[in-house]
């Protein structure tokens, strides 16, 4: 399959990817529940948007929805995903396959399980290349080796012949990144790419992603639960809670002056940000299951500022930069 190179955007400030009003729903007894509800954001060339939130908030589902890979029985209920202005949600699977791994590529959390254990990493990278470019096996192989070399794997020629289990965790994630980048995508979705790695290796992988981005100017959607990591890589941050984006803003202002009570809580509860010892500020309660969310603002049952209005009416989701989804934002 040969896919045309992505059409260059006429206006460099025009977003590469624009997501709006995205719902991902699952059928439950007598109806459906939205695991992702009205999510909107845009990715710009050369910039990184971090989607941050706790487990179960819908951040990974959002990423999979962009690629049309929502696992059954979930489905995209509403919304639009536009890549260079082209609507992806209405494309059939065949057309979407031309985009996946080619224009929009993805890196996952667990490089051990995300690589196929029975094929060499070289074969898996070459496969990604041949799915989108007409190339001989030999050409694809050479491309894979040069990509492995490019992501900092020494002795790439030989390492290409290694099976995933023969590589260390850091090497595997480099191989994953090589596989994602071999078709020179202009959007990279990185879903918790360093969560399974040790902290010194995490630093190397973050450097690698930033270096690759600098080199080819791709837009990065960086998904993480770790605000520390997010603060190291993000230009913009969207905070997700219970299926919606509750706050979306440039990273610097988010960490300097968080406006949503949930964002504030997340930052304050980080053990590294407070003086040692003593009690950590804590957010009471747990993230609600997506089938049993509270009425009104989803955070109202855990929020110290919530009043009757918060429990009755949902604030509009934060779908663009500088927005916050809270009736009490900026309250003292």
């Amino acid at each position: 399959m040969t896919a045309a190179a992505p059409a260059p955007s006429p206006d460099p400030a025009e977003p590469v990817l624009r997501v709006a009003g995205l719902d991902v729903s699952f059928a439950i007894d007598g109806g459906s529940a939205k695991a992702v509800d009205g999510v909107g954001f845009q990715l710009t060339r050369g910039r990184t948007l971090a989607l941050v939130g706790e487990s179960g908030c819908g951040k990974s589902l959002t990423a999979l929805a962009v690629l049309g890979l929502v696992p059954r029985p979930g489905r995209i209920g509403a919304g639009s995903v536009r890549y260079h202005g082209r609507e992806l949600t209405s494309l059939d699977d065949r057309a979407l396959r031309g985009i996946r791994g080619n224009a929009i590529a993805m890196v996952f959390q667990e490089p051990m399980t995300s690589l196929n254990p029975v094929y060499t990493v070289g074969d898996q990278i070459a496969e990604a290349y041949r799915l989108h470019f007409s190339a001989s096996a030999r050409e694809a192989r050479a491309e894979a080796v040069s990509m492995l070399d490019h992501v900092g794997i020494a002795d790439a020629q030989n390492r290409a012949r290694a099976y995933p289990h023969q590589l260390s965790g850091g090497m595997r994630q480099r191989a994953m990144i090589a596989m994602a980048l071999v078709c020179r995508p202009d959007v990279l979705i990185a879903d918790e790419p360093t969560t399974a790695l040790d902290v010194t290796i995490q630093g190397q992988i973050l450097d690698l992603i930033l270096a690759m981005q600098k080199e080819n100017g791709m837009a990065v959607l960086f998904i993480s639960h770790d605000l520390g990591v997010v603060s190291e890589v993000a230009d913009d941050v969207a905070v997700m809670y219970a299926g919606t984006i509750v706050e979306q803003t440039p990273a610097a202002s988010l960490f300097a002056a968080p406006r949503h009570p949930y964002t504030r809580g997340l930052i304050e509860t980080l053990p590294g940000t407070t003086p040692p010892g003593g009690r950590l500020p804590a957010i009471p309660g747990v993230v609600p299951d997506f089938r049993r969310r509270p009425k009104g603002c989803r955070f109202s049952d855990r929020c110290s500022l919530a009043d009757g209005h918060c429990r009755d009416a949902s604030p509009p989701p934060a779908v663009s930069g500088g927005a916050v989804s809270c009736w009490k934002a900026d309250a003292p």
Partner: peptide, 10 residues
Amino acid sequence: ATPVVGRGKR
């Protein structure tokens, strides 16, 4: 190597 909020982009 430990990421800490508030140091700005790496």
